[in-house]
Structures are given as structure tokens and as C-alpha cells.
């Protein structure tokens, strides 16, 4: 199953990058979403995969039984998801504002101040 996850991470990453390399600003933002997923999957897989044993201590226990999912990567991913959501929300609005100002959704037209 690591192989499956590794491939998913790779596909998400590739699709995201491909989208970002397009000239449409909308695709740029969509690409960001996909590579974000890819990063989360990567952490999730690298932390070790465990099927269906969530990291919640049972009512009759005081510790997490061995073989439960590693809670730390989950916490990290949760933080990362939320942060990337914040960034994404900002990016979406930024892109739409830029589109309004420049009047074009082609990033090649965003080069005026750069030469």
C-alpha cells in the first residue's frame, strides 16, 4: 500500500505542477491545491500507514494500543491542511484581484514590472 500512496503522491504532484506551469492564473491556483494534497499524502505515508486503527484511546484503556495509527503525522497534516487553506483562500482572492487589475488571466501579461 506504500506503493499505491507513493504513486498517488507522485500523480498529484505531477498534475499540480503541470497545472501551475500553464499560463492561466486559475490553473495556477488549482495546481497549488493539488500539490498541497500531494504533500499531505507524503507525510501521511512517510509517517507509516496503519489501517483503521485511529489514534483514539478506547474508553476502557489508558494508553493507545500498539498498532494504532501514528497520531503525530496526523496532527502535522491537520496543521498543514489548515495553513494551506488560509494561503489558498488568500491566493484565490489575490488572483481574482490581479485579473481585475490586469484585465487578463494570462500570467505572461503579468510581466510589466519585471524587466
Amino acid at each position: 500500500m506504500e506503493l499505491l500512496f507513493a504513486i498517488i503522491a507522485g500523480v498529484l504532484f505531477a498534475a499540480g505542477l503541470y497545472l501551475m506551469l500553464r499560463r492561466s492564473i486559475l490553473k495556477l491556483v488549482m495546481g497549488l491545491v493539488l500539490i498541497g494534497h500531494s504533500a499531505n499524502i507524503t507525510i501521511f505515508t512517510a509517517g507509516g500507514l496503519t489501517r483503521a486503527r485511529s489514534a483514539i484511546i478506547a474508553p476502557d484503556a489508558t494508553t493507545l494500543p500498539a498498532g494504532s495509527a501514528d497520531p503525530l503525522p496526523q496532527a502535522l497534516i491537520l496543521t498543514a491542511i489548515v495553513i494551506s487553506f488560509g494561503v489558498l483562500a488568500f491566493a484565490i482572492v489575490l488572483v481574482s484581484r490581479a485579473w481585475q487589475e490586469v484585465g487578463n488571466d494570462d500570467t505572461d501579461q503579468f510581466a510589466e514590472t519585471d524587466r
Partner: peptide, 19 residues
């Protein structure tokens, strides 16, 4: 406009870095 143009590049490349 210049700010937004610059910001798009700044944001995109820095997000790549973050990822």
C-alpha cells in the same frame, strides 16, 4: 497593479518552497 503582479510571483514561488 505592480503590487499584484509582483505578489503573484512572490506567493507562487514561496508556496512551492513551503510545499
Amino acid at each position: 497593479r505592480p503590487q499584484l503582479e509582483g505578489a503573484i510571483k512572490y506567493v507562487t514561488l514561496n508556496l512551492i518552497s513551503s510545499v
